[in-house]
């Protein structure tokens, strides 16, 4: 017995460690990854956040310019709306006002097939699973898990993420899926072939799922064709922004979302 152990001991250890690894890979490959995050990852998240605090000073200037520009645009929009509101001024119901929770994204990656982003806002700030996450330029992902102070976001660049996207001004909508190896190109499925779709068309969020507000710009069609004998287009959409630069994001808290999903759930019973 001990002879065997000496002879095959290392091989045995090798197989043992590999199976432990593969167990983890399989066990945590899906959404259960959030369990790993909330407990074991405390340590590295802490370090990463501290590191981020330091490194975020680099590029501050550029970011400030960007914010300034955005502020200006928002102010302009606010004024326009104020004028329009004065005209309508009927309904005063603000219970369905969409709230934006500003957050910082760190620990983001665009390299793997299943990318996750960590946010520095959690349950205490009102973040709940199922909420959408956007930034100034487009859609970032969907919150899947929250702890007290952090939230885990399933990135758009995750093979299992499906986001409803609409073709601007053409009324047709489909599902956005990330299949390519390029972190800037998404596929848009289920656009029927009778729709006239051309490269250059703008894709926005449809707002059907209530996760994201309607009409957020996502990207531009770069190629569209109907394969022989198919009823749907094969569309490639180029994202407007560099995922690598996603830093300041907003979690979309749409009160209507919960009410609608409650209603839908009650219908299914």
């Amino acid at each position: 017995m001990s002879q065997l152990l000496i002879r095959y001991g290392t091989l045995l250890l090798f197989l043992l460690l590999e199976s432990a690894c593969f167990y983890m890979v399989i066990r945590y490959n899906s959404d259960q990854r959030s369990i790993f995050t909330s407990s074991a990852k405390r340590f590295s998240t802490g370090i990463q956040e501290r590191y981020y605090n330091v490194s975020s000073y680099i590029g501050l200037r550029e970011k400030m310019d960007h914010m300034q520009a955005e502020k200006a645009a928002l102010k302009a929009e606010l004024e326009t709306l104020r004028v329009q509101y004065a005209d309508v001024s009927g309904s005063q119901d603000t219970s369905f006002a969409v709230r934006m929770i500003p957050a910082r994204a760190f620990n983001k990656s665009t390299l793997g097939n299943y990318n996750w982003i960590t946010l520095d806002k959690g349950e205490k700030d009102g973040v709940k699973p199922g909420m959408g996450v956007i930034n100034d330029d487009g859609i970032v992902g969907i919150v899947r898990g929250v702890s007290a102070h952090y939230a885990l976001v399933m990135s758009v660049l995750h093979r299992d993420t499906r986001i409803s996207g609409a073709v601007l001004h053409k009324g047709s909508h489909g599902l956005l899926v990330w299949r390519s190896s390029d972190p800037r190109v998404l596929d848009l499925d289920y656009i029927p072939k009778h729709v006239v779709l051309e490269p250059g068309d703008t894709i926005v969020s449809s707002g059907y799922s209530n996760i994201f507000p309607e009409g957020i710009r996502i990207g531009m069609v770069i190629s569209s064709e109907v394969p022989q004998g198919q009823n749907f287009y094969e569309v490639k959409v180029k994202l407007d922004y560099d995922f690598f630069k996603v830093d300041d994001v907003y979690v979309v808290d749409n009160p209507a979302r919960e009410e609608i999903s409650r209603l839908e759930a009650s219908m299914q019973q």
Binding site: L17, E18, A20, C21, F22, V25, R33, T37, S44, Q48
Partner: peptide, 22 residues
């Protein structure tokens, strides 16, 4: 194994780096 697990903590990929390094 230890090194791989450490890297996995940062990469959010339990077991992937560890299995490769083992």
């Amino acid at each position: 194994f230890a090194m791989g697990l450490g890297v996995d903590l940062f990469y959010d990929s339990p077991g992937v780096h560890a299995s490769a390094l083992v």
